[in-house]
Design a protein around this nucleic acid. Structure first.
Lengths: 338, 338
DNA sequence: GTGAAAGCGCTAACAC
DNA sequence: GTGTTAGCGCTTTCAC
């Protein structure tokens, strides 16, 4: 920058003023400075700027994963919003719930000059990481249980899970079985919503089945489900597991939705291509990321605005759910019920 | 750091030595310093460190997208390798091929203190961005055509495309149709490989069909393909498009692979769950990212090692491809050929 | 081994 | 409007 100043025949602060655009600089000098910058191919040093100004335009995303569908979409949403505001994003992955391990994973990121941090509370590592972010850094939490004292954006999956389950009951199913994905806490919102819908309708609440993140685990569960004649409707924790479950049911010669209805969750891009097309709840992950970033920005600006943002997923009814097959239901109750 | 030094009763450089771990510090002072750090909850300032040392432990990924399967997996691979080496990653998304626009998108990232940049040359914006990275920053290119003067890691998709096409011909198909995804250059390696296999076998080379990144575009193409009785085998640019094509073919009442064989590319996590399970080529994107990071590290260390890394995808034969249906082939030639 | 001094490239505060 | 002065929090000589 000193070089630029010299070439342009001005002082260093003047160059700084031109670059920051804030203070007034005469058009003449401004042009000279711009010319010098172009000629020297000058790039300002963000490190020096940060050191002198104690302001940063970098936000870090702390997450347990980056490539799974919901994570990747959320990150995309954050990045797009950040870019639109002139911010750059860093990524920090935490893979454990062990305190000291998280601290060391976070250490190098937290010593970076950050404007703030957005934590994806999608899984236990994310939940654990949130608690270990230094208190002097602005933070936004995404998803998970309601936080006190932390700005937070969520998708109301409890409500969506309840709606989806109720929809299934309204189709005439006696009850709805549930396959859950690894939860971020004791019980995910989807599962809570499912349970609530069954309780309100005074239906039997079958024990939930646990899938891993691998869709193939859904397939194995599908096999088991197909063999239980009491099962006529299944609500899965996400679309990929639902695809696995459908495949597993098909492996056993049963049809979806004729024999068993299966609903997913997410509105995964392939859910409308699957055969049968999936009934699901549209989770706007990118929107979640965008709302999270907005919350961070308003926090940085010290605005009084809302500290909490919630979005309600829309239920999308497609071909994988229908009214129960009378034959299967009745057989289940009379002859083969366990 | 001055506070820490004071509390520990040592000088600032001594604290710095303890933190960097390089120089020798007596055990006694080291302990005192560590205690002071813990007590004050001290976090070193990466900005100041960078400014003074002109070294950074941040690498930026420049990409045209972050959430699509191949991109997200590659980013995951880079991030994992980077984390293992104590590096942090930043993400810069470029959405255009227009020079000045790219420059402004890159500007804020390039003024960050970066150890290096990894560019995903998966699409035209990525290709264009590579050319605009300042020459003084270490760079690694991922995928795309062979670069001169730039370290590069690739997956040999040309070879895999050729192999996959040849495999289809060996099943007895007269020719293989090709549905391509948006290419990063004039012609993607997959398409080149497909063309090469057909040329070597002296088969007719049908004009390739263009899909978008949206799997639904594959479905529409599937409809067209199903109506052309000359089509018995289709090689798709990626698995998601293949899923769309299969769905489209099914929409028209034809079966895969009995009537038409369909192969994909990637080994997408859902490809083995699809019905029928997809024949495909396994692209190890995470491995690509990891190799790219290694190339960057060896470049930073000034090592003489290889500047180029190539990996060969393995062909995975599953249920979506088979020998042609004699009926369809012959009917095509005699009565319904267009 | 350890401390003192200098300076990385910028911005902030102040005078003019 | 513009230049001067003084740091930001570290690392890097260099002397001891």
């Amino acid at each position: 920058m000193a070089d630029v100043a010299e070439l342009a025949g001005v002082s260093v602060p003047t160059v700084s003023r031109v670059l920051s655009g804030a203070a007034n600089v005469s058009q003449k000098r401004r042009d000279k400075v711009m010319a010098a910058i172009a000629e020297l191919n000058f790039r300002p040093s963000a490190a020096a700027r940060v050191l002198a100004s104690r302001k940063s335009e970098v936000v870090s995303i702390v997450a347990g994963d980056t490539s799974k569908y919901g994570y990747a979409e959320t990150i995309r949403g954050i990045e797009e919003a950040a870019r639109a505001h002139g911010y750059t994003v860093m990524i920090t992955v935490v893979e454990t719930t062990d305190g000291p391990e998280i601290d060391s994973a976070l250490a190098s990121t937290m010593s970076q000059p950050l404007a703030g941090v957005i934590v994806l509370k999608f899984d236990p590592p994310g939940v654990a990481a949130l608690k270990r972010i230094p208190g002097d850094i602005p933070v936004v939490a995404l998803s998970g249980i309601r936080e006190t004292g932390v700005h937070q954006a969520v998708i109301d999956e409890t409500r969506a899970g309840e709606e989806l389950t109720r929809y299934l009951l309204e189709q005439g199913h006696r009850t709805v079985h549930h396959v859950r994905v690894p939860p971020s806490r004791r019980e995910d919102g989807r599962t809570t919503g499912w349970r609530r819908a069954l309780r309100k309708a005074e239906r039997e609440i079958p024990p939930p089945l646990d899938a891993s993140w691998d869709p193939q685990s859904g397939r194995r569960i599908g096999h088991a489900l197909a063999e239980d004649p009491g099962v006529t409707a299944v609500f899965c924790g996400n679309d990929e597991i639902a695809m696995g479950v459908i495949r597993g049911i098909a492996d056993r010669g049963l049809r979806v939705p004729e024999d068993i209805s299966v609903a997913g969750f997410d509105n995964h891009p392939l859910s409308s291509l699957w055969n049968p097309e999936l009934t699901t709840a549209n989770q706007d992950f990118a929107g979640l990321g965008g709302r999270g970033f907005q919350l961070l920005v308003s926090q940085l600006r010290g605005e009084a605005g809302p500290r909490f943002s919630s979005d309600r997923p829309e239920i999308i009814v497609r071909a994988s759910t229908a009214a129960p097959n009378a034959a299967r239901g009745s057989v289940a109750e009379r002859d083969e019920a366990v």
